[in-house]
Amino acid sequence: MTASTRALRRATGFGPVLIALALFWLALIIGAPLATVVAEAWSKGSEAFFNIFKQPDALAAIRLTIIVAAIAVPLNAAFGLAAGWSIAKFEFRGKALLLALIDLPLSISPVISGLVWVLVFGARGWFGPILDVAGVKIIFALPGIVLGTILVTVSLIAREIIPLMAEQGSDEELAATTLGAGGWTVFRRVTLPNVRWALLHGVLLCNARAMGEFGAVSVLSGHIRGLTETLPLHVEALYNDYDFVGAFAAASLLAGLAVVTLIAKSALERVGAPRSTT
């Protein structure tokens, strides 16, 4: 997250003590759980580990997870870009309120993010009876899982894009306009390239959170194996069935996704940082 330009000191005095302390803490809090996932997944050998990819329920869970992310992430990306364009490039009243609204989901418990959709679309929800008559199923089905995931991740891309667009101002866009470019051209050829790294950064985070979402999806899914179970829910189900190797094998897939996300993210920060600072 930080592209450090300052000359770093060799550790002296308190330095080594602080470094040791920091590394010990990180190893305990972050390293140990990650190592546990890997160790448990491989505890019964590779055959037990790869067994997970042969179970239809697990494959269905992987597929559903990908489908949910494939719907939620592009929608949230479109939202982030639209919000960035209108909030950062224009002046209007109520902007602070809109920004607060966009930030709000970050401070909501994932379980509440699931709950609210049940209150709206559940069997006894506001629109439950109408949906029942129409034969549309939202809760305990794909649409509900998608809605919960979107609500949990809606702020992530917008928060990456809005501050950057605001910092860049709108002079480049105005320059493009006076040179005869239309609105869509200005967006595509000037605005979008200027925020592409932030967009990608946001998409990475959003995707990781969407694929790993548990609390909201847990409330909305109905836990039907092979049908409405995403990969994180499948991990829970296997764990509760005392299939620890299976649970940790599935978990290590998700952990792998998280690690890949982090690697891509820090690579992106190194690529994107130099030009965005000029």
């Binding site: 002079d171 480049e172 105005l174 320059a175 493009a176 000037v190 390239p193 200027n194 030009r275 000029t278």
Partner: peptide, 9 residues
């Protein structure tokens, strides 16, 4: 423009 507003990318 005052700060030129060149397209940085």
């Amino acid at each position: 423009f005052q700060q030129y507003a060149l397209f940085r990318h």
